[in-house]
Amino acid sequence: MPIDAAKALAAEPRTGEIAWTTKDVQLYHLGIGAGIPATDPDELRYTLESRLHVLPSFATVAGSGAPGVISGLSMPGVEVELAKVLHGGQTLEIHRPIPAEGTATATHRLAAVYDKGKAAILVLRTEVADADGPLWTNDAQIFVRGEGGWGGDRGPSTRLEPPAGEPDETVERFVREDQALLYRLSGDWNPLHADPEFARRAGFDKPILHGLCTYGITLKAVVDTLLGGDVSRVRSYTTRFAGVVYPGETLRIRMWREEGRVRVAVSAVRGVPPREGGRAWGRGDAPVLADTVVEHS
């Protein structure tokens, strides 16, 4: 069996030093669509080093670049083909605001291996701390097609009841044709997001956007729309990747306010930016992020 759950869970954690600079933060923000309009004061806090605030989802790439997928496949007891792998979900807990530059210690381990029958799910936990204490905890759920069926624990259900009523806010964000190419410079080099031939082998018509790019675009929309642009208010952020996004599509981000949190649903709705007009193409209102919650102060 390519996944040996007992061996994977018994493996020693991997610990290493990570570091990031303001340039890394700025590149990440640009990769999720910040900086439009370029001179907007609300955007400059994401792009100008003298005003830089760090969106908490930067934690998913800080220092080592998207450890949830690539590093998870190199853990003991895990031998699978990259083309069978998708990012199934992400949970991020922020212990205190992320500095614009810093060094820290990151500890990676497989926290769980679940048997979903036709697939396996690996939960890779990354805990990051600096000299002042814990900074964040990341759980990446890695979905591996065709690797289940050994009779293991199916794991907890992550499905939530849909939010009640109409959303409090709805915004749309256009995904540029080169968005995945820019985002991958933050460290996720999976060819699924750039190489058409590899994407076809993985079952897609063309390269798809990184799930974590959609994740970042969505958190920025929530912070800017409902949290007054204050990145320090985010306490945790969790989502399930329910579908793919193709560069050139538009994301519709629906938000519902609840006590201490925001419920979110994201879909791909069309393939031309609203400002350009013309005939829209796309997949209707295809879900791409589900069971999404941003907890805040």
Score class of each variant (00 low, 15 high):
78 V>G: 00
121 I>L: 15
292 T>M: 09
232 S>P: 00
287 P>L: 08
116 K>E: 09
279 R>P: 05
200 R>N: 06
74 S>K: 12
131 A>E: 15
245 V>E: 02
18 I>E: 02
82 L>P: 04
184 R>L: 05
5 A>S: 13
279 R>K: 15
48 L>I: 05
15 T>A: 14
220 K>T: 03
82 L>M: 15
71 S>D: 04
205 D>M: 04
166 E>M: 04
35 G>S: 03
189 W>T: 12
215 Y>H: 15
85 V>N: 02
66 A>R: 07
76 P>G: 10
181 L>M: 12
158 T>M: 08
212 L>F: 00
47 T>G: 11
204 F>Y: 15
137 T>G: 05
297 S>W: 00
128 V>P: 04
69 V>N: 01
290 A>F: 06
107 T>K: 13
286 A>I: 01
53 H>F: 01
208 I>Q: 00
115 D>K: 11
4 D>K: 08
11 A>W: 01
281 W>C: 05
138 N>I: 14
210 H>A: 02
228 G>P: 11
66 A>S: 15
37 P>C: 06
18 I>T: 09
201 R>E: 01
155 G>Y: 11
166 E>Q: 14
102 G>S: 09
159 R>V: 15
235 R>Y: 00
212 L>W: 00
285 D>K: 08
11 A>I: 10
122 L>D: 06
11 A>Q: 03
35 G>A: 13
225 T>R: 14
184 R>D: 00
239 T>P: 00
24 D>A: 14
247 P>H: 08
255 M>Q: 10
129 A>I: 07
29 H>Y: 07
135 L>K: 08
187 G>K: 05
107 T>E: 07
61 V>N: 03
275 R>N: 05
208 I>R: 10
250 T>E: 12
220 K>S: 12
97 P>F: 01
182 L>R: 15
139 D>S: 11
172 E>H: 05
66 A>D: 08
237 Y>P: 11
179 Q>A: 15
219 L>N: 11
188 D>H: 12
143 F>D: 05
64 S>E: 04
252 R>I: 00
259 E>A: 15
96 R>E: 08
164 A>P: 05
30 L>F: 13
162 P>V: 10
171 V>E: 03
125 R>W: 00
26 Q>N: 01
249 E>V: 02
53 H>N: 11
60 T>G: 09
265 A>D: 12
92 L>H: 12
221 A>S: 13
266 V>N: 08
117 G>N: 12
277 G>P: 10
236 S>H: 04
101 E>I: 11
278 G>L: 11
268 A>F: 00
19 A>W: 07
73 L>M: 13
44 L>I: 09
135 L>W: 10
169 E>D: 10
76 P>W: 03
213 C>I: 03
120 A>M: 12
221 A>W: 13
287 P>R: 01
288 V>S: 09
183 Y>P: 11
130 D>W: 02
62 A>W: 00
18 I>N: 05
49 E>S: 14
259 E>F: 04
293 V>R: 08
126 T>R: 14
174 F>V: 05
72 G>L: 07
213 C>H: 06
231 V>S: 10
208 I>W: 02
42 D>Y: 09
189 W>I: 08
195 D>G: 05
295 E>W: 03
188 D>V: 02
111 A>W: 01
230 D>Y: 02
169 E>Y: 01
